[in-house]
Design a binder for these strands. Structure first.
Lengths: 208, 208
DNA sequence: TGTACATCAGTGAACGCGCGTTCACTGATGTAC
DNA sequence: TGTACATCAGTGAACGCGCGTTCACTGATGTAC
């Protein structure tokens, strides 16, 4: 929206690709990943209906780009959260959990494109790579978590990361945007933190 | 589809409402909850484009009906699973977990309408009631689970049911329909069972 | 059991609308010299 | 630094299409007597 003011009278938009992506983020949030049209995105970006075709093959392509960008942001956020909490593996792990919720909350459009739009991960090699990168953070954080356990008591790291991912995603979907968990007596943050806490206790990471 | 054969030449369809719902289940599964049109549903049911309006106000209304029906089936399935496993609270609880996954797997259209279509639970009192009924099963199963614990060690049942629900839903979304969990080395069933197991151990329900 | 009539549950034509997509075009920008 | 030209990134008109929705209609079904 700032772009429009800045470049008001230019024949060329100058940054249409990004503007379309940003319009798409809003539209996805409002109407879901299949609830809007190319024409709407164009209108939103203040451009003729034909213009988007200079940058994207169609809506699917546009959403894929949004998802890709989302995964990059996501991976970065997870990585830096992990690094920040590093002294203790447990703190780092919890920081990653918070980062997950935080990302879902502040980037709902990206989150939806990534996880609710039905974009196939195997659609493009780029997408595949960045998804793996994002998920590796979680697995790595899990691994560190039970480094101090005797090897035969260590659970498979990918299993643990899958569990944590599943619970995080479930909390986001059911309790963050208020649907259909409705008026839950707990916030998403409380739920995830307590849930993961109990889970880690079950793994023997946290004593008592 | 059987209906079509049975009543082939009748001017009246005879069972159009149900036929539309069933067509919608397929369409939702294929194209998502906002990826199809009323006209498509009508065509699918072998009926003119105007006919659906005798039964539904529009697509939203149709999807809401599907979700409602889904919640009823869901509640029944959960209840009977719970009853079946009753002797031990733990067995009953696990049966409910399995029923959850089983429902999601055998009724993907319903599941999507219920949890991924953005239908507001507060949309109709009917819907609200049946959602509560379905979720009560889970909470009740959780309650029984720590009946034998000293009262001051009992976690809040709704919290526990929310945790379990979140993990179940997460597993379904990420690892059941293969997206975006991709080629996970574990099946949805394995993941949920192990995840819930670790979680219950963390609660002190399962020893060791 | 037959008949007259009301109601129900469809049809099909019609309408206006917005979408996707193509296309020749044109103004702005970049670059070779 | 200026100029000529190529390329880039938009426009706007055009098209055919399917959708949502309304409406008068009609065939089938149910029911009162």
């Amino acid at each position: 929206m700032n772009e429009q003011l800045r470049e008001k009278k230019s024949y060329h938009h100058g940054n249409l690709k990004e503007a379309l992506i940003s319009a798409t983020l809003d539209l996805i949030q409002e109407k879901g990943p299949t609830g809007f049209t190319m024409a709407e995105a164009a209108r939103s970006a203040g451009v003729s209906a034909a213009a988007p075709y200079r940058h994207f093959k169609g809506r699917e392509d546009l959403i894929e780009e949004v998802a890709l960008q989302g995964y990059v942001l996501f991976a970065e956020k997870m990585e830096s959260a992990y690094a920040r909490g590093k002294p203790t593996p447990l703190k780092a792990f919890e920081a990653v959990g918070h980062a997950y919720l935080d990302f879902a909350r502040t980037n709902p459009g990206h989150y939806i494109a990534m996880f609710e739009s039905g974009v196939s991960v195997s659609r493009s090699p780029d997408l595949n790579m960045v998804v793996n990168r994002a998920m590796a953070v979680l697995t790595q954080a899990a691994e560190k978590l039970f480094e101090h356990l005797p090897p035969n008591k260590r659970p498979p790291a990918t299993m643990v990361s899958h569990h944590v991912w599943a619970m995080s995603h479930g909390v986001v979907e059911l309790f963050m945007r208020g649907q259909p968990g409705g008026r839950a007596p707990f916030s998403a943050e409380e739920l995830l933190e307590s849930g993961i806490g109990i889970y880690l206790r079950g793994l023997g990471i946290i004593p008592k």
